[in-house]
Amino acid sequence: MQEQLDELREHEAATGSPTQRTSVMTHVAWAPPEWVDTARRTLAGLEERHPSRTILLFPEPKKPDAIQTTVSMQCFAMPGVSHDVCSEVIELRLGGERVHAPASIVQPLLIADLPTFLRWRGEPPWGAPELDQLAGVCDRLVIDSSEWSRPKVSYAELARFFDRIAVSDIAWGRGRAWRGRLAELWPGIAKLEKLSVTGPRADALLLAGWLRARLKRDVELVHRSGDELTRVAVDGEAVRPPLGPAPTASDLLSAELDDFGRDPVYEAALRAAAA
């Protein structure tokens, strides 16, 4: 793989405009078959903002024992910069038993001294060796709990990871602007009884969990399903929606990749949501 990357770099240097290879992190993405297209789409909007070495892991346990690799360079023109900026994308199809030993495959490819983010598409297989191993070699686990079928139950599983690896939840990021709006209601919101949320189940659970944890009181959640967070009401009164369009999937992932440490407010909100 390293040789293929070297060849690509030489090729870029010999044929293209002046380029510069830049990485601010290694971005590992675990994408089961049903998430492959979505993962690629999100990546397309991300690389310009977070030049990184991206390692896409596609688990294919029913296929024969093998690793198939595809290596490519993605180059972008940057405003005000005379060089194109290039990032490396390594796609690994892990067949058969290789699915269960991803850390040993990924570790030689991580860029030393830069943070490694692990984006896990769908619900992680709690207790499975691939999750444990990758959590052991990465600095931050990024999930989107709205991709899970029963988030409330799984939050307890996720909470067990907090002492092992910093966790980001895109569902939590999606609610940031709404949390800002709710914070503006202080001190009137201090005695909140009932929170009504229209949007993904996970987003609603986390918003209610956050209020329970921060206000230190029980808050009843009334949830109406929706693809996006569109309405929040406090004791029956609608909250003024945040300005502007909702952030895209790439925006949300990009924002999570700006964080490095643990987020105690999120951890408390998640625990309160699971309770």
Binding site: V24, M78, G80, H83
Partner: peptide, 13 residues
């Protein structure tokens, strides 16, 4: 050894 501002951080200063 080059650090290119626009390359390492989000596009558009």
């Amino acid at each position: 050894m080059n650090f290119l501002y626009g390359g390492a951080f989000r596009a558009g200063l």
